[in-house]
Amino acid sequence: MVAYLERYAGELSRDGAEIRTGARVGGVTATDGGFTVRLQDGQSLSATALIAATGSFGHPHLPALPGQETYTGRITHAACYRSPQALAGRRVVVVGAGNSAVQIAYELAEHSRVTLASRAPVRFVPQRPLGRDLHFWFRLTGFDRLPLRRSADPPASPVLDPGRYRDALRRGRLDRRPMFARLAGEEVEWADGRRERVDAIVLATGYRPHLDYLDPLGALAPSGHPRHARGLSSTHPGLGFLGLEWQRTPSSNTLRGVGSDARHVVRGLVARLPRRNVAQGARRGD
């Protein structure tokens, strides 16, 4: 993967693209000719068109937990989890029912007493049906390219199981319970009213798009999600998006799906912008 990304960057550079690393965007404003991108180091860039490609995994979602303000234990997000050693010997609750929740809970169970807490039971699918990874079948069958829409409140994605996770639950190595009712001091109160001391809670509660820099444009809904149709902004004709979950297909936020989305977004932006602006932007290298 590292070699692929290095090779990709090298090809872009040879094609004349300017690649700036460590250049965090502080905000974007609209201008008569397009956009001004303000970097946190004080520099500014102008562009006829702008594609926000910061993806789906830059903004960890931290839901408010009842009683959280009284809880004396540690609360962390899966994005900050690095290894089980930091929680070895502790009583830990992992919140979630997706792949990250199950994988972290499974790893922690070697060193700690762990409960997986979720609003719905965990759903498992085999990781390698007929000896090939599930993603191979997604690509082969065309599932990757289906124009599916995700519901507003979707269930957790099924957990890809190489054979050990479901077995760990069945054997009791992992304990799964319905989501707890509240936190109180050093304790968790479970749905059945029982209370138990818990040292740490790991929230495997997903992510939200990391697009705060577009706030000044008015391009985002109150939820922080972009206003768009299949990657093309509904508020600004020169603005596009890439890497969003379920942007056009189930694989939109994966390396194997983003290329198709990129072609769609670029074609859409070229069609929406006046030809004069596109030509001027090309001459300037925007």
Score class of each variant (00 low, 15 high):
Met1Phe: 06
Met1Pro: 03
Ala3Cys: 05
Ala3Glu: 14
Tyr4Arg: 14
Leu5Gln: 14
Leu5Trp: 13
Arg7Pro: 00
Ala9Ser: 10
Gly10Asn: 09
Leu12Ile: 03
Ser13Pro: 00
Ser13Gly: 06
Arg14Asn: 06
Arg14Ala: 13
Arg20Pro: 00
Gly22Val: 04
Ala23Asp: 09
Ala23Cys: 06
Val25Cys: 06
Thr31Met: 08
Gly33Asn: 13
Gly33Val: 06
Gly34Trp: 06
Gly34Phe: 04
Phe35Ala: 06
Phe35Tyr: 15
Thr36Leu: 11
Val37Tyr: 01
Arg38Ile: 03
Leu39Arg: 12
Asp41Glu: 10
Gly42Cys: 07
Gln43Tyr: 06
Ser44Glu: 14
Ala47Ile: 05
Thr48Asp: 05
Ile51Tyr: 06
Ala52Trp: 08
Ala53Arg: 10
Thr54Leu: 01
Thr54Gln: 03
Gly55Asp: 10
Gly55Val: 08
Ser56Glu: 03
Gly58Asn: 07
Pro60Arg: 02
Leu65Gly: 07
Gln68Cys: 02
Gln68Lys: 00
Glu69Gly: 04
Glu69Ala: 14
Gly73Cys: 11
Ala79Ile: 04
Gln85Ile: 03
Gly89Arg: 07
Arg91Glu: 14
Val95Asp: 04
Ala97His: 12
Ala97Leu: 08
Val102Glu: 09
Val102Asn: 11
Ile104Val: 10
Ala105Gln: 08
His111Gly: 05
Arg113Tyr: 10
Thr115Trp: 03
Thr115Met: 01
Thr115Phe: 00
Arg119His: 14
Arg123Ala: 14
Phe124Leu: 11
Val125Asp: 09
Pro126Gly: 08
Pro126Thr: 12
Arg128Trp: 09
Pro129Lys: 03
Asp133Gly: 07
Leu134Cys: 06
Trp137Met: 09
Trp137Ser: 07
Trp137Thr: 05
Phe138Arg: 13
Leu140Phe: 14
Phe143Thr: 14
Asp144Lys: 04
Arg145Asn: 11
Leu146Asn: 05
Pro147Phe: 15
Arg149Cys: 05
Asp153Gln: 11
Pro154Tyr: 09
Ala156Leu: 06
Ala156Arg: 12
Pro158Ser: 08
Leu160Asp: 10
Asp161Lys: 06
Gly163Val: 08
Arg166Ala: 15
Ala168Trp: 12
Ala168Val: 00
Leu169Ile: 00
Gly172Val: 03
Pro178Lys: 09
Trp190Gln: 00
Ala191Lys: 14
Asp192Cys: 01
Val198Ile: 15
Val202Pro: 01
Leu203Arg: 02
Thr205Asp: 05
Leu211Pro: 01
Leu211Thr: 00
Asp212His: 10
Leu214Asn: 03
Ala219Ile: 02
Ala219Gly: 03
Ala221Thr: 13
Ser223Gly: 07
His225Ala: 13
His228Ser: 05
Arg230Tyr: 11
Ser234Ala: 15
Thr235Glu: 15
Leu239Ile: 04
Gly240Cys: 05
Gly243Val: 08
Trp246Phe: 15
Pro250His: 15
Pro250Cys: 13
Thr254Leu: 13
Thr254Ser: 13
Arg256Trp: 15
Val258Asp: 02
Ala262Tyr: 07
Arg263Thr: 09
His264Leu: 06
Arg272Cys: 03
Arg275Ile: 07
Gln280Phe: 02
Gln280Ile: 01
Gln280Asp: 12
Gly281Leu: 01
Gly281Phe: 01
Asp286Trp: 08
